[in-house]
Design a protein around this nucleic acid. Structure first.
Lengths: 195, 195
DNA sequence: TAACCTACCAAACACTTGTTAGGGAAGGAG
DNA sequence: CTCCTTCCCTAACAAGTGTTTGGTAGGTTA
């Protein structure tokens, strides 16, 4: 009748791993139950549907993400420092919610059409506003180059940051901060050697 | 008994669009048939399974891709010029096979485990060898910076190029060559304004 | 001991899935 | 006209899907 929140979180974590590895639609509730060491029907003691598991996984991730993004945006930093902080927080978030980020990458596009997942589209808009706005602010302040299409730059930067979730492993040799540092160095200064 | 190749190609094109939009597993053969204006069973006059449709879509794309990549790699260009040519060919390939690239992005990871799609893993290895090798050659030739982790750079460059398939539209305002030019300018020179 | 709650199992449900088999309409070839 | 090929439809199949219902073992509370 009233399951414990701790068990729910455990099950959501294993479900997220399976979703990320196999894709949401290819994941059957029986596979999730297998990974959790129980039978398919037993999941419905904790959750009322497969879809609500996905919902809770994504919503939890986005809540956490935006708490940190909002803190950065409210800090009143300059354009370059804002970008640096957003990138760093993004890689930290990949470290914390790797599975959720991978799911978001793979499924958000066609989930966004469903009313239940409308907040995904909302989040994406907020996301674009924050990043694109910062880039434009930087161009106006003569911190970033003006000869590049800002929207194109935004897409490149956004994509590169988030697809990292597909290869990032927590036990890897680079910390999220180190990855962010190298990524920022590449995007800001370029990989070509100066004469 | 013997369907015409032209009709096959038509059907594969519409199937690829649906696969790209909805994901392979979420796409039912009935949805493909709907999009093609026929019934589900009729598809089996042209193809012997849903999986073989996916197979043919991906194999056709990779064949085309490698024909062009190999031409670039055989041209004997310098590291920087090789990267420029590879990036440009990649965006052109996205223009030609947008749906196939999107499918490859979404599904190749967990398809690679199946024996039938083993060539996906093979292609990825060849891909890494070409790109990573060129980057390392550039570092040795003092054309690219030596203080960046080359493997990390490779992943960033690779991912950013290919995820473009998720937002690129042929009728958009930028040609593949223009997108490649801006992308190369960003990656090579950086977005920060020089003092 | 008795009542109760948590967390799971066992077995089934209605439905959707990829796939197959047989048939038939349209049109060109003889 | 007849035969044959191409292309699709109708109708069903077995397996797998998400979900529901009723039951039960084990611990906690009274």
């Amino acid at each position: 009748m009233s399951p414990s929140p701790e068990r729910r979180e455990e099950l959501l974590a294993t479900a997220a791993e399976v979703f990320a590895a196999q894709g949401y639609n290819a994941t059957t509730v029986r596979k999730i139950a297998d990974a959790a060491g129980m039978l398919a029907g037993s999941l419905y003691y904790h959750f009322d549907s497969k879809e609500s598991m996905l919902d809770e996984i994504l919503a939890t991730f986005l809540d956490d993400l935006w708490a940190r993004y909002d803190a950065v945006l409210a800090a009143g930093l300059g354009p370059r420092e804002t970008i640096e902080a957003l990138v760093t927080e993004s890689f930290r978030e990949i470290d914390r919610h790797r599975a959720a980020v991978a799911i978001y990458q793979n499924e958000s596009k066609h989930l966004g059409t469903q009313p239940r997942f409308g907040y995904l589209a909302g989040s994406q808009q907020k996301f674009e506003k924050a990043w694109l706005g910062t880039l434009e602010r930087g161009v106006a302040a003569k911190v970033f180059r003006a000869d590049l299409d800002v929207r194109l730059t935004y897409r490149f930067v956004r994509d590169t940051v988030w697809v990292a979730a597909s290869w990032y492993r927590p036990e890897g040799q680079h910390s999220p901060e180190e990855i962010a540092r190298q990524y920022l160095s590449m995007v800001l200064e370029g990989i070509a050697l100066r004469a």
